[in-house]
């Protein structure tokens, strides 16, 4: 299979999975934005993406995208290290016009993966996984996304880890975006500056939005009033689906 045997083919696989993951993070950041605008709407999204067949199928495809992208990146890096030879340069300078990110994609990727592990433990394991098992984490309804946001972001270190993850993601995406089009052969002298510009704008919007969301969730999770409201929602609604907003304690449950 030329996709795994040739160097160009391997890069095609990296590009396709990478572009898929860019689309995923873009969807993810928009989904998070719902939690700022409408917490009840966010819970509806969480319910929609629970243990349904379509959500599970989507999760499997997504997981496959991640696994292929990560494993192939490690294989490519090992091959490249071998191709570089045993003797390193004594003096080696990064030429002008060469992005720092482009030469540190593996390190940036590892930081992003570490962040994803923390993120999966804090959310996926407590939500979709529990729903799949028919259990609950800390007696919270798996579809009550807002409650899990409060739980995770009430810890000070959560925001720090997330901001580091987003910074690494920004660098990774600014290079990965245009590099994917280059590897797919859909690039030329006219499109190079356009793609690089789009890459920077896209990555900046996604990462700033992620960071803003993290800060808002942290503020909410650490404001006593909001907490009391959330507890009120939890107490009133119990296992029922909460359809109230965090701000409005007296709203009803379904």
């Amino acid at each position: 299979m030329w996709l795994s045997k040739s160097s160009v083919g391997r890069k095609v696989v990296m590009s396709v999975t990478g572009l898929f993951l860019i689309l995923f993070v873009t969807f993810h950041v928009l989904m998070n934005a719902v939690a700022i605008i409408s917490p009840s709407g966010y819970n509806a999204v969480c319910h929609f993406l629970g243990a349904n067949w379509y959500a599970l199928a989507g999760t499997l495809v997504l997981a496959a995208g991640f696994v292929i992208h990560i494993i192939l990146s490690i294989i490519i890096t090992l091959q490249n290290k071998k191709a570089r030879g045993n003797d390193a340069y004594d003096v080696n300078k990064r030429p002008k016009n060469v992005e720092w990110a482009s030469q540190n994609m593996l390190a940036l990727g590892i930081i992003v993966v570490c962040f994803i592990v923390v993120h999966l433990i804090q959310f996926w394991y407590r939500m979709q996984w529990q729903e799949l098992n028919g259990t609950e984490f800390g007696e919270i309804n798996p579809a009550n996304g807002v409650a899990f946001l409060d739980l995770a972001f009430s810890q000070w270190y959560t925001l720090v880890i997330y901001l580091i993850g987003f910074a690494a993601l920004w660098f990774h995406m600014t290079h990965g975006f245009w590099s994917a089009f280059q590897s797919l052969g859909t690039n030329n002298n006219t499109w190079m500056p356009r793609l690089r510009c789009t890459a920077t704008i896209w990555a900046t919007i996604v990462c700033i939005l992620f960071a803003v969301e993290g800060v808002v969730f942290t503020l909410r999770a650490n404001c006593p009033e909001c907490k009391a409201a959330q507890e009120c929602v939890n107490a009133n609604c119990g296992d029922a689906e909460p359809c109230t907003t965090v701000e409005n304690c007296n709203a009803e449950c379904k």
Binding site: K11, S102, L184, T186
Partner: peptide, 30 residues
Amino acid sequence: GNCTNTGACAAECPKNISLNNIARLNREFI
């Protein structure tokens, strides 16, 4: 090795060969 599009090659090339050519090679090969 496998190309990761760092662009160091074109930046150091004494004949200023453009990265454009690598995109063309990928396109031709695919």
